[in-house]
Write a protein that binds this DNA or RNA. Structure first.
Length: 846
RNA sequence: GCCGGGGUGGCGGAAUUGGUAGACGCGCUUGACUUAGGAUCAAGUGAGCUCGCUUGUGCAGGUUCGAGUCCUGUCCCCGGUACCA
């Protein structure tokens, strides 16, 4: 391969600066009590979503967010902040284990190798991380505290009165029994229908199901005994406290929808000697309930089904179970169902209404049963029409809409004592009535389910739990971390029996005590890593109180800026908030939220506008870009592509563009044979226009970084470079300021030029990365003259140079002096003059 | 269907208390330097034509001296989500 001449020798100086930052600990961040800690500095915590160290290494999406936070971190440092900007690895989890199975190597080995590769790649990008804080979720010392936090959940319950978690020891003191306490722990064991995947060999959380299905794995419903986390107790707080966060509205909404709060009521219907409760958001339509539907798997179904209907009901149930989620595709929306033969009594009017089962009612939501009001619910309406069930109007629309299937608010009709009431009032009144008659209650229903927390896999944190005589017990802290035993074969066995159960010696302890063999999901580690970064070496606590307080905000969220992809909207970001709130309730952290400001970087597409993937052949490897154009070019390009949050396609030509820009900056200072150009002069700058551009650049770049508007900041620096290129001389002082402004974006080249300049001009060669962000001079920004646009009747006719402080009269006279203006205005009457000094004068004539 | 985001040159994108549309970069054109140019420097580059004007920010209206920006209606694209009672 022929040697390509590089426009500037990045291959030489980039590694040089990287190792210098390393050896000098340039980006080490002191904690309170550390050498070099300065209590007068404000803190700033800027965090990336740490990567899962895959076998394929970084893709270009990683450097996008990482460069953005690096720029902000470096900028804040230069502005006098004590910046915490750490990096680590989310190294447990199913993909790591699958990769290990594929390569035939133990996941510990592949994970270590992958981490090493990620670290090399991250360092080659010149990120200013405090590498002394690097953590991996698989580190035994990290596992210790992940397990410790789990035990915090295990030994807590949710106190409804105080709306917060409290230690279960309080209940013990009150004399609660062992079983009673086990029923309220935030971490508990339950038999529930769960999502099980045979080929993955584990169960999955609701939130994860779609992702794995889309990768082609088969996931099915199955009742299993599992560890759950009682996140539902936090539903309301998780919802309400979103409002205190500076997050994209879209993400907040996604979480709100996932939590899915519905206000309504529960109504009890009698069926013969049994009763069944339904949840409804429209208790005001109770008079219109003409039938009832149970989920096919509802436990009451066998008890109420009449003999002559048993065969059909059972057939339907079977049908539903078999097609439960494979065939129940998106298109299959046709209503189906069968009559059970049973009748329920409508508590409000005693009406006998038929009880059906149908798969449009889900066992997993509400009570698994509904009262059907076909007149005012689209689904019930469709079902009633399909099976010729009565449709009774009980709401009069406010407009002239058809009442049939009208689901919005209106006025109650055909509803006895509710008649004439608007929906809101009718709801309140009927609930009052139901409560009085003990036939129902007001109820707030959430869509959010408790978090299925156990996995049957090998590559995860074991539960710090042992069993004896059917009871679970927490390991004491001295026994942490509890690490998984070495296993020869950790391939999925096809049964829900956890892999760890194969390690008999590890599982079976003396006196009939056995270990819990489930492991935690990958989310466990990522739920609290931002806390560990604050105090990663601590042996005594998961984070010291001093460090925790120091790195917390006076705002609700601890981390000042959190940047990452949108794919974690309802997974990691919800789970981490939940754990944080538990730790907050228990007094372990001092803020109610983990992440104050959240920004989602947009996906980078391939050059063809498609999602990057190996199979499409449109993937870009950062290593290749770095070896061809250098890390600074890659960083700069990713920031120049467009707004951080936007989806945008990769263009190799664009990398060349920013590389050319950096080459221009290089040539301002360095000649072809590596010497300093003669153009740089130490004398004061006399070129006012050049000064103005430079100070405008200092101002705009600073403002743009604060706004995370990196593309426009780079654009301004390009303008500045063009001005410097065209200038007679390059003023040393201002050029150094310019290098400081460019430094957070392109740290290597700016350090290199800076060092060479310092050598030539006998200046102290401190690191540019440790420079102070330059101040701009307001005076230098002032323009005395400007170009004024002259419009006649709103159309641009002329531009004139005029003093900034010219008054309207002067501007008007100057405008009318123009031939072009005369041409359009002569012979007409001037009706109005609109003058915006410095911008525009519009002459309205007719 | 619902929710969210977005439609601006050949391309990525600038510009919103309403005030020069297309900054900056890519690509393209021309010129200079050169043995050479996939380097560099300089100039140009929305479209149309009668070369000074007309037109131009998805589409159709409206408000205004003036609209990419505000209002009404409408179409399209992307992302999320889907029988949640």
């Amino acid at each position: 391969m022929s040697e390509i001449r590089k426009p500037f020798p990045f291959a030489e100086f980039e590694p040089k600066w990287q190792s210098r930052w390393d050896s000098e600990n340039t980006f080490r961040t002191p904690n309170p009590g550390d050498v070099g800690f300065d209590a007068t500095k404000p803190k700033y915590y800027v965090l990336d979503m740490f990567p899962y160290p895959s076998g394929t290494g970084l893709h270009v999406g990683h450097p996008e967010g990482y460069t953005a936070t690096d720029i902000v971190g470096r900028y804040k440092r230069m502005n006098g902040f004590n910046v915490l900007h750490p990096m680590g690895y989310d190294s447990f989890g199913l993909p790591a284990e699958q990769y290990a199975i594929k390569t035939g190597q133990h996941p510990a080995i592949t994970t270590a190798a992958n981490i090493e590769n990620f670290r090399r790649q991250l360092k080659s990008l010149g990120f200013g991380y405090d590498w002394s804080r690097e953590i991996a979720t698989t580190d035994p010392e990290y596992v210790r505290w992940t397990q410790w936090i789990f035990l915090q959940l295990y030994s807590s319950y949710f106190c409804e009165e105080m709306n917060k978690a409290k230690p279960v020891s309080e209940l013990e003191n009150k004399g609660w029994s062992r079983d009673q306490i086990d029923d309220v722990r935030l971490a508990y064991v339950a038999d529930t229908p769960v999502w099980w995947s045979t080929d993955l060999g584990t169960v999955l959380a609701n939130e994860e199901v779609e992702e794995w299905k889309s990768k082609g794995h088969v996931v099915e419903r199955r009742p299993l005994r599992q560890w759950m986390l009682r996140i539902t107790k936090y539903a309301q707080r998780l919802m309400d406290e979103l409002d205190t966060l500076d997050w994209p509205e879209g993400i907040k909404l996604l979480q709100k929808n996932w939590i899915g709060r519905s206000e309504g009521g529960e109504v009890v219907f009698a069926i013969a000697d049994k009763s069944i409760t339904v949840f409804t958001t429209r208790p005001d339509t109770l008079f219109g309930a003409t039938y009832m539907v149970l989920a096919p798997e509802h436990p009451l179904v066998p008890q109420i089904t009449t003999d002559e209907n048993v065969a059909r009901v059972e057939a339907y149930q079977k049908d539903c179970a078999s097609k439960s989620d494979l065939d129940r595709g998106d298109l299959n929306k046709d209503k189906s169902g069968v009559f059970t033969g049973a009748f329920a009594t409508n508590p409000v009017n005693g009406a006998q209404i038929p009880v059906w089962i149908a798969d449009y009612v889900m066992m997993g939501y509400g009570t698994g049963a509904i009262m059907a009001v076909p007149a005012h619910d689209e689904r019930d309406f469709e079902f009633a029409n399909r099976f010729n069930l009565p449709i009774l109007q009980v709401v009069r629309p406010l407009d002239d809409s058809d009442w049939q299937g009208y689901a919005a608010s209106g006025i109650a009709v055909n509803s006895g004592f509710l008649d004439g009431l608007p929906t809101a009032e009718a709801k309140a009144k009927i609930i009052e009535w139901l409560v009085e008659k003990e036939k129902g209650v007001r109820k707030i229903q959430f869509k959010l389910r408790d978090w299925l927390f156990s996995r049957q896999r090998y590559w995860g944190e074991p539960f710090p739990i042992v069993w004896k005589d059917g009871h679970h017990y927490a390991l004491s802290n001295v026994n942490l971390p509890l690490l998984a035993p070495p296993l020869e074969n950790y391939k999925p066995s096809g049964t829900p029996e956890p892999i760890l159960s194969k390690a008999r010696e590890w599982v079976e302890l003396p006196d009939g005590v056995t270990r819990e063999t489930n492991t935690m999901p990958q989310w466990a580690g990522s739920c609290w890593y931002y806390l560990r970064f604050c105090d990663p070496e601590n042996k005594e606590r998961f984070i010291s109180e001093t460090a925790e307080r120091y790195w917390s905000s006076d705002k609700p969220g601890m981390v000042d800026l959190y940047v990452g992809g949108t794919e974690h909207a309802v997974l990691h970001l919800l789970y981490a908030r939940f754990w944080h709130k538990v730790l907050f309730d228990l007094g372990h952290v001092s803020t109610p939220e983990p992440f104050q400001k959240l920004v989602n970087q947009g996906l980078i597409l391939g050059e063809d506008g498609q999602k990057m993937s190996k199979s499409c052949g449109n993937a870009v490897n950062p290593d290749d870009v770095i070896s061809e154009y250098g890390a600074d070019s890659l960083r700069l390009y990713e920031m120049f592509m467009g707004p951080l949050e936007q989806v945008k396609p990769w263009q190799m030509k664009g990398v060349e563009g920013v590389s050319r820009f950096l080459a221009r900056v290089w040539r301002l200072a360095i000649t072809e044979d590596g010497k300093l150009t003669e153009k740089i002069k130490a004398a004061d700058c006399t070129d006012k226009e050049l000064l103005r551009v430079i100070h405008e650049t200092i101002k705009k770049v600073g403002e743009d970084i604060e706004k995370l508007s990196f593309n426009t900041a780079i654009s301004q620096m390009m303008i500045c470079t063009n001005a410097l290129t065209q200038a007679e001389t390059v003023p040393l002082k201002e050029f150094t300021q310019f290098l400081a402004v460019l430094n957070p974006f392109a740290p290597h080249i700016t350090e290199e030029i800076h060092e060479r300049i310092c050598a030539k001009f006998d200046r102290s060669p401190g690191l540019l990365s440790e420079a102070v962000w330059p101040d701009y001079d307001d005076q230098a920004l002032i323009r005395t003259e400007c170009e004024l646009v002259v419009q006649v009747n709103g159309k641009l006719r002329e531009r004139i140079w005029i003093s900034m402080d010219a008054d309207e009269e002067t501007a008007k006279d100057r405008a009318f002096a123009s031939e072009k203006v005369k041409e359009h205005a002569d012979g007409k009457t001037l009706r109005k003059v609109i003058y915006v000094p410095g911008k525009i004068i519009n002459l309205v004539v007719s």
